[in-house]
Design a protein around this nucleic acid. Structure first.
Lengths: 334, 334
DNA sequence: TATAGAAATTGAACTGGTTCAATTTTGATG
DNA sequence: CATCAAAATTGAACCAGTTCAATTTCTATA
């Protein structure tokens, strides 16, 4: 079979305990260190993390569970998280649950059998989970990203969802817009509700009566955004500005606007969500709410690492990061 | 600590070998089966896949290595692959290497230490790897997705890249286009070169002299596609049709066209790449080359599973799947 | 009912690491 | 040079499963 530390020990004429100590960075006699290094090189030894994990009860893996691998927000966050985790020699095991509650349970159990040391979870439309409770019972740290599971006590990293909407709408108001429409995400989700809330709060703060026909739903999908925008543009009194509450809806809406040969910002003002590649390349470049996906991933990774290492200070933490408005040219001052 | 099969064995009054056999689906005496199932339920036993992996030398994980987690093509393929793998109780460990050769090596070694049973690799612009050679030496199956590593002998699943271009361009020619531009991907990549090749072959087949100014490069990026399209539209004799060789360039180009107030298909015909959500939502819906990402993921997963299970028939396999043209309304017959 | 062959069960040995109590080596000090 | 505490090393036991040769139980047949 493959080369084990026993082989290395024999070749270097030391005990296996010494080789183990070498591998784990303990100090040892210079002459032994040299002989072990030589033996490792000559034998082409590679340590077996599975065997290591058996005794230490650590797999050095963090489970990542998300609704869909093709979700740009989640994958952006994960990219950043993975970078941090890799620095500490952790790797990520990724599972998607296709927005299905039963698959979520299944994947969570699956990862648990695999002894993940921690979990980063994007629950999306799933608001509860029995399997997740088992993680808490066994004290496996869980960090939820930009979401809420009200009856489950875990760490969270979130963006300031309602604040993001508030500032976007406030910006429109400051540019003298009053007829401001929103294309909302799915109201069964935390982010969907929060972003809607911020919209309402901004209107309220400036004494603007919300108009029912300006409140539309795109359900976080491209097609949804497209259709909602189409509906808005067809109104007898169309809004002077549209705010979309996520990336996919933003591009659906833009396409509807282009199609209607309505120009941004001359005919209608627009604030989108997320600052991914497409937003800049559009003409005119879009004013958007930028989610700090890198920061979010970084925080989630660092938090889960801290917990994995036993530091439970401030549990359950709820780290919130602010979004940023990227002001470009898609909003006209009235 | 946690509940082990020894605890289950004791409680069910059988030996641990019997419990092991139960867990692995062997037949056993009805009375024992019942008692074991009871014990498992009562104790809340969950098997430890890490311990299992130590003896069997199988981790039940497949490594997935790709340049970027935010690449929609790769994540679509992976989604389909994961579905198949999960059916056989395999999970995927995902690493991105950020298009860096050294990170690729690092991640491959990392996964190897983690005893992945197989590897699905999207090499992108990396055309070779020492760490990968170690996989072959140790007979860990590797499947490369839609790419080529000329001096490394592995299984591959590919799409018919040059054929895809050929048919797209041929379709334009059949609609009487002669001034056909291409927005090429990065020529340092296999897919970039192949797709360009198909374009040239189609022109040649129909005796059309390729025109240098119609051959542009968008390097597979959104911005690249945008800029290439802008350049094409600014030509004294702009092409009557544009073909873009991947998704991101397609949308960059569309935005450039919209911006220039040129209409598809009246002013210019267009064939894009990939049939993701945006292509349909555009007006008019785009005629595109559809890559069967589901099929590709399925094939990659099934192939790697076959190899993992020791079936090396037909090694190295090179499974090719055909792209499909989705004919919509973005091409005008001249 | 005895018996042979098949089927099921047993449990010690094994996988490749870590751990720690016991032992050996080192080196500073009187 | 003897002594002793500190540092380094040793190797058996352990982690939670699988495996397989040996043993026990079952079943069919004479």
């Amino acid at each position: 079979m493959s080369v084990t530390i026993r082989d290395v020990a024999k070749k270097a004429k030391v005990s296996l305990g010494t080789v183990s100590r070498y591998l784990n960075g303990y100090k040892l006699r210079e002459s032994n260190r040299i002989r072990i290094e030589e033996a490792i090189r000559e034998l082409g030894f590679q340590e077996n993390l599975i065997a290591k994990g058996l005794k230490t009860n650590r797999s050095m893996t963090i489970g990542v569970v998300l609704a869909s691998l093709t979700d740009l927000f989640a994958t952006s966050v994960i990219t950043a998280a993975e970078r941090i985790l890799a620095q500490d020699n952790y790797s990520i095991v990724v599972c998607d649950f296709e927005s299905s509650q039963s698959k979520l349970e299944q994947k969570l159990r699956f990862l648990k059998a695999r002894s993940v040391d921690g979990l980063i979870l994007f629950p999306g439309s799933c608001t509860s989970s029995d399997a997740l409770r088992e993680y808490l019972e066994d004290e496996i740290p869980v960090v939820i990203v930009n979401d809420d599971m009200p009856d489950i006590k875990t760490d969270k990293v979130v963006i300031d969802n309602s604040g993001a909407s508030f500032r976007a709408v406030e910006w429109l108001i400051h540019q003298n817009h009053r007829d401001i429409a929103i294309i909302n995400g799915d109201q069964n989700t935390y982010t969907g509700r929060e972003r809607y809330k911020g919209y309402l709060e901004a209107l309220q703060t400036y004494n603007i009566e919300p108009r029912e026909e300006y409140i539309t739903y795109g359900y976080f999908s491209n097609r949804g955004g497209y259709e909602a925008a189409k509906k808005l543009l067809a109104l007898e009194h169309p809004p002077t500005a549209i705010y979309t509450a996520n990336y996919y809806m933003t591009f659906g809406a833009i396409i509807a606007i282009n199609e209607a040969k309505i120009r941004i910002p001359d005919d209608i003002s627009f604030i989108g969500f997320d600052h991914f590649e497409l937003s800049d390349v559009i003409n005119p470049p879009l004013t958007v709410v930028e989610q700090p996906t890198d920061r979010l991933g970084e925080l989630a990774a660092k938090l889960v690492l801290r917990r994995v290492k036993g530091d439970y200070e401030g549990f359950p933490a709820r780290l919130s990061v602010n979004t940023r408005m990227i002001i470009k040219e898609s909003v006209k001052r009235l």
